[in-house]
């Protein structure tokens, strides 16, 4: 039997009930994907609204109603496609559970994904800000190079906004170099 992403539930039907049911290859899985996407829209809408007060105009009622409609479609298909009433009932219950789970997984998944993304972005921005505050330029103080000159002055390299280098001695003297720090001369 040919398997693909869009026929996962069809394969499940065939695995459980075999020839006792003749469902469409794609209908159930496509409705499941729709439910997951509804959950994602609801989750991201609520998350962005709660955190940043952005309104995505997501209606919980419309999402629940749409999910119920999709469950209804699958109930019709179950009744028509199953050879016995017992299989039709069991399949309807199974699909109802799967579609509701899809909605919940989409909701929780999108909230978790957005929360992780927010934390990662916040940490990255915090590192950038912290580095800029400590070093006055990008990269922070950890990567800064230092040289001890023969006159006793200690020269420190600082990076400018565009990546250009500035060399300042501990005495306050500004230096420059043409050979990457082998020899320095006063500006």
């Amino acid at each position: 039997m040919k398997k693909d992403l869009f026929s996962v539930l069809y394969s499940l039907d065939k695995k459980i009930w075999g020839d006792q049911i003749a469902t469409n290859r794609y209908l159930a899985t496509v409705t499941l994907i729709c439910c997951v996407l509804f959950g994602v829209i609801l989750g991201s809408g609520k998350f962005l609204n709660g955190l940043f007060d952005w309104s995505l105009r997501v209606s919980i009622v419309a999402i629940i109603a749409s999910t119920i409609m999709l469950i209804g479609f699958n109930i019709i298909e179950s009744i028509i496609a199953a050879k016995t009433a017992k299989i039709a009932t069991l399949r309807s219950l199974m699909i109802t559970g799967i579609l509701i789970s899809g909605l919940v997984v989409g909701f929780v998944g999108s909230v978790v994904a957005l929360a992780i993304l927010t934390v990662v972005i916040t940490i990255y921005l915090a590192i950038l800000l912290f580095g800029a505050l400590l070093g006055g330029g990008s990269g922070g103080s950890g990567g800064r190079k230092k040289w001890k000159l023969s006159n006793g002055d200690e020269v420190t390299e600082e990076k400018g906004l565009c990546g250009e280098s500035y060399y300042t001695g501990s005495s306050g003297t500004s230096y420059d170099t043409n050979d990457g720090g082998n020899t320095f001369y006063e500006k």
Partner: peptide, 21 residues
Amino acid sequence: AQSIFLFRWLLAGTMLVWSIW
């Protein structure tokens, strides 16, 4: 059967959801 479901106006709440379906 979609046209036979009553209270279908509840579905028309979020344009993005409706468009996906």
